[in-house]
Design a protein around this nucleic acid. Structure first.
Lengths: 242, 242
DNA sequence: CTTGACATACTTGTATGGTAGAGGCCATCA
DNA sequence: TGATGGCCTCTACCATACAAGTATGTCAAG
């Protein structure tokens, strides 16, 4: 059969997650597990996520599994087709453009506000996060660097005076995050990202809004400018669209 | 008992929605019904939405009701407390500031793009929508005006060249939409809104980006500038926070 | 009158059973 | 050989039942 099999086999990476009863519900834990695996690229697009198979895998009933899948569907990470199956969604290129526009617009605005509200403590926090990133770079700790990168942007957002904006964009950023993971894994771009962070940092420290804005925009757009090469390196992660 | 009863009675406004089997699933229909009723202010904040009561009301089982409630919870319209109950969430003032910042940042950027990509058809569409709004004003058709208002902004967004951005912000705008409904119901502000739309329209037509941007920002910020009087007129819709 | 314990009637969370529809497989037939 | 129709499996979806935690009403003791 030359017809491309739409549904790949279900192969969940590792063993089951620790069944910690720490307050959060089972469906929440399943959601966290699946979403982080999709974002980190461990669950490949077009992988079938059958409710029954997932029940066995997690040793729970279908109910919490189903709820987790529905949430993943709402977040755009999973496509649920009635009476056919649920599958990990490939990354949509048009969706990336959407997310990029939103993130860029908002983060630039947050940056402007953060600079007008900037304090010595704020600058110190950024400096500390930057030095952390350099440590992670030396030890090639990719996942840690990724989270520190997140933190860097979150610190700026929190300084804007409007709380929670960064978290409010979490769902929208999901597909961008998937690409950023691909970039970190397949390319050796940590050095460049740190340089860009430093440019942003210096501009903030100097209170130079225009320079900071330019540096941030340049930094955020890197994902899209590198997109072609990322798609070429890992085409199985992306939608096939004209 | 002088202690304020946290949970109000469940009083769902009208009769049940038509059980149309038109493709969409039951849980989807329940979600649509509840969300629109919350947004339009027909379901008051702090109303208890018991799964069992909703089952009776819709004559379905708990499963689809529960899924709808979970989606509403993710959207921020409903709070689900384990083993305690589910309640319509009051509008959070800090959440409004968040949503406003995001909406403003993105829509201003979309407006810039729309102006650079503007075409005669685009201008014509805006003009047509404006004339529709004046008709609705004359006949005091509030709900229709609300949707035409939505449309006006959607037309601008679609002209940006990046598709689907407006819809991507739907969840974030939800609480803003609730306030806009309150404003339309309790105030006589349609005339002012139309004037603002006209200012935006003229600036777009003339290709004057700075003027359009100013007009749009002024228009979008109206919600916040009127917020105090809206809260005073309908305090039961808002969170009590310092 | 206040206060504490206990029974009860709620709530959401989880588990399991049943149903209709979509797609693959294979035998049957032109 | 190629096409077609029926069967069969798998899916998500809905209904029902059970479990566990919370608020409340009652009642007795201080």
């Amino acid at each position: 059969m030359t017809t491309a099999n739409q549904r790949e086999e279900l192969t969940i990476p590792d063993l089951e997650p620790p069944r910690l009863d720490n307050g959060s519900s089972i469906s929440q834990q399943i959601y966290d597990y699946l979403s982080s695996n999709v974002i980190e690229g461990k669950l490949l697009p077009r992988t079938a996520l059958s409710e029954n198979k997932l029940c066995e895998f997690f040793s729970v009933s279908r109910q919490p599994v189903r709820e987790a899948l529905l949430r993943l569907s709402a977040a755009g990470l999973v496509a649920v087709y009635s009476q056919r199956g649920s599958f990990v969604r490939p990354i949509s290129l048009s969706g990336l453009k959407r997310a990029q526009l939103i993130r860029e617009s908002v983060e630039i605005e947050l940056l402007r506000l953060a600079i007008t509200h900037r304090t010595p403590e704020f600058v110190a926090k950024l400096r500390a996060e930057l030095s952390l990133q350099k440590t992670y770079q030396e030890h090639l700790q990719i996942e840690q660097f990724y989270h520190s990168d997140e933190n860097f942007h979150r610190i700026i957002s929190d300084q804007s005076g409007v709380s929670g904006v960064f978290d409010a964009l979490k769902d929208i950023k999901l597909n961008l995050d998937r690409v950023r993971h691909l970039e970190l894994v397949t390319h050796e771009s940590i050095g460049i990202l740190i340089e860009q962070h430093e440019s942003i940092f210096k501009a903030i420290r100097d209170g130079d809004r225009r320079r900071a804005e330019r540096a941030m925009r340049n930094h955020l757009r890197r994902v899209l400018s590198e997109l072609d090469s990322i798609v070429a390196a890992a085409p199985e992660f992306f939608e096939k669209e004209p």
